[in-house]
Amino acid sequence: MSTRTFRITVRGVFDGLSADQRAELLARAPEHDVLRAAFTTEGHLSYDLAARSAFTFRFQDSGEEEEDILEATERAEETAKAWLAERGYGCKNLRSSAEDLSQAPLGKRQRRAAAQKNV
């Protein structure tokens, strides 16, 4: 059985941040910039608090069965909630989406590379 790779995105909105929490997030904004966003096993947080109070966590997980994506999504949501709670950051409107990369359509370069291998 092959391993499937899942990409999970957990989105939400910071809620009820104190002035100190907001200042802390703004100070750490460069390391959480959307241009540095990546799907990682521990999760990567990105936000632009100067523009809006929304945030996104990106997680990468794996499983062997198609149904494993549900557990991976649940783990990602719990990890995001725990990260926020540990720092005392309130949140609302938490929602997630997940993609099984084994089910994703091939891009143009991938199709071309696959065609060259079959020649």
Rank of each mutant, 00 (worst) to 15 (best):
M1T: 15
M1N: 09
S2C: 08
T3L: 15
F6M: 04
R7L: 04
I8Q: 02
T9R: 08
T9G: 06
R11C: 13
R11H: 14
G12R: 00
F14Q: 01
D15K: 14
S18H: 14
A19Q: 10
R22P: 01
R22L: 02
E24P: 06
L25Y: 03
L25D: 00
L25E: 01
L26T: 08
L26N: 08
A27M: 13
A27G: 12
A27L: 08
R28Y: 08
A29R: 00
A29V: 02
P30H: 00
P30I: 01
E31H: 02
E31S: 02
D33S: 10
D33F: 14
V34N: 04
V34D: 07
A37R: 01
A37M: 02
A37T: 02
A37V: 03
A38L: 03
A38H: 01
F39L: 03
F39M: 04
T41N: 00
T41G: 01
G43N: 01
G43R: 00
H44R: 06
H44C: 03
L45V: 13
S46K: 00
Y47R: 02
Y47A: 01
D48E: 08
L49I: 08
A50Q: 13
R52T: 09
S53I: 05
S53M: 05
A54H: 01
R58M: 05
F59D: 00
F59S: 00
F59Q: 00
F59A: 00
D61A: 08
S62D: 02
G63K: 01
G63P: 02
E64N: 13
E64D: 11
E65M: 15
E66I: 12
E67A: 13
D68G: 03
D68Q: 12
A72P: 06
A72E: 05
T73I: 13
T73S: 07
T73H: 05
R75S: 07
A76T: 09
E77N: 09
E78K: 07
T79S: 13
A80Q: 05
A80R: 02
A82C: 15
W83I: 08
W83R: 02
L84M: 14
L84A: 05
A85C: 10
E86F: 13
R87A: 08
G88H: 14
G88M: 12
Y89G: 07
Y89C: 12
K92D: 10
N93K: 15
N93L: 15
L94A: 06
S96G: 15
A98G: 08
A98H: 15
E99R: 06
D100M: 13
Q103S: 13
L106G: 05
G107E: 06
G107V: 09
K108I: 14
R109F: 08
R109D: 06
R109W: 10
R111I: 13
R111Q: 15
A113I: 11
Q116R: 11
Q116G: 05
K117I: 07
K117P: 07
N118Y: 04
N118I: 06
N118A: 04
N118V: 10
